[in-house]
Design a protein around this nucleic acid. Sequence first.
RNA 1: GCCUCCAUAGCUCAGUUGGUUAGAGCGGCGGACUGUUAAUCCGUAGGUCCCAGGUUCGAGUCCUGGUGGGGGCGCCA
Length: 477
Amino acid sequence: MPGRTEIVKLLAEQPIGSEVKVMGWVRSFRARRFLVLNDGSCFQNLQVVVDFERFDEELLRKIQFHACVAVTGKLVESEGKGQDIEVLAEQIELLGACPADAYPLQPKRMTMEFLRENAHFRMRTNTLNAVFRVRHGLAYAVHKYFHDNGFYYLHSPIITASDAEGAGEMFHVTTFDLAHVPKTEEGEVDWKQDFFHRPTNLTVSGQLEAEVGALALGKVYTFGPTFRAENSNTTRHLAEFWMIEPEMAFFDIHDNQDLAEDFVKYLIRFALEHYPDELAFLDQRIRNEEKNMPKEKRRPMGLIEMLEFVLAHDFERITYTEAIDILRKSKDFKKGRFQFEPAWGADLQAEHERYLVEKKFRKPVIVRDYPAEIKAFYMRQNDDGKTVAAMDVLFPYIGEVIGGSQREERLDRLQARMRQMGVPEEELWWYLDLRRFGGCPHSGFGLGFERMVQFVTGMGNIRDVIPFPRTPGNAEF
RNA sequence: GCCUCCAUAGCUCAGUUGGUUAGAGCGGCGGACUGUUAAUCCGUAGGUCCCAGGUUCGAGUCCUGGUGGGGGCGCCA
């Protein structure tokens, strides 16, 4: 727009005395004199001083919460406290009215549940605004980290034919008219007539394809949407989420752990450096929220304090066997505070993970070398004959943020595992070929992007860190 | 999928052992005031108490069944 300046630029350069034109949405209009605008260019607002005697009454009446206006005026030093500069309005143009008697949002505290039902408006609130700024920053940092460290961004397919990854229930992809599905003479679905001439699904993981890339480009990563048709109803599951999956040739499980720790610390550091205003706001928001809670329910640390704490300490690294041992020796177990008994061979329950992270070590923990029975077929079998080189990175509040492993590169071992677990070898012929032709030791992991955003922003529900959450029974927007 | 809690004004909530006309704050609308920072003050409108049954002289309140939502667990990232 001719002559329009972004608020971020005005606040940074503060061109006192110059004539400026700003456009933005009304955050508040106090005393019919103080108009606060936000244009999305930064988290801060710009105050506009309106000499209301000079403006049309009809126009002033329409300057309501979240209406959109263009203001021309002189930029001056602010007379009041709370802001350095302000604009003395000479012209005000209403770009888009926002009738307050019909608009669902209000300049007051609203619940996250209410805002979810108004997902098309919720990004206009300070909280969601801050969250999505940080989300963007983290996405950018993912690419920057990997690029700077010699990784190649690999676009793994969204539609896949393999249904053998064991990562969960899948969404089917078809062009069939579901009311008239073609059948074979035997009465079964005739997939040969479908678009791909075979059954296909939305991807649940790009890992197998990433391995293809790693064995050619050395270090690759995927970063794309991932779909799980599981009926999961929790604050940390989505049916559609974004996953980051680095895969590295010549990395063993220890290199894998080093990378995971360095990577997530980089992301946290990036957010702290580039989004201090947003994080300060989110930090304060949590404090306000917890003000009326009993002390034992509050977070032991503030948001920023916790992020800095995570950066300042090495992640604890233990084996699954050690984890079980710690849990069985714990006071919580002896006093019967666990609902599930920690026992070698059983998966760690959420309560066990929380004990390790929040009570025992009080920092992120990486658990590795899990029993083979509870992990996927492609994980590398350890020499003990019982465990595989798997690793989970556990964070406070959100639990597992990363799951990964060293991959089984030995063809005979891999095939034995597949037969044992009923994974069809024919379908994964190309995956097995990676072991037949020029195979090498390699490792990788998957990071749930939304869980990372959750951790950095301190948001309690994963549905509030993705613009349009898909969960069982919900795909409205 | 299992367990649990919740549903009262536009929003956030209160509503006593079942008892007359359903309450507050914020927001809306009308007005006053003006260098404010969630401005303040006065006035005013606004309710199918989620839906359908049932118990009762009487149900926002108790019971049953739905629907919608929150939280916990499982599955996982």
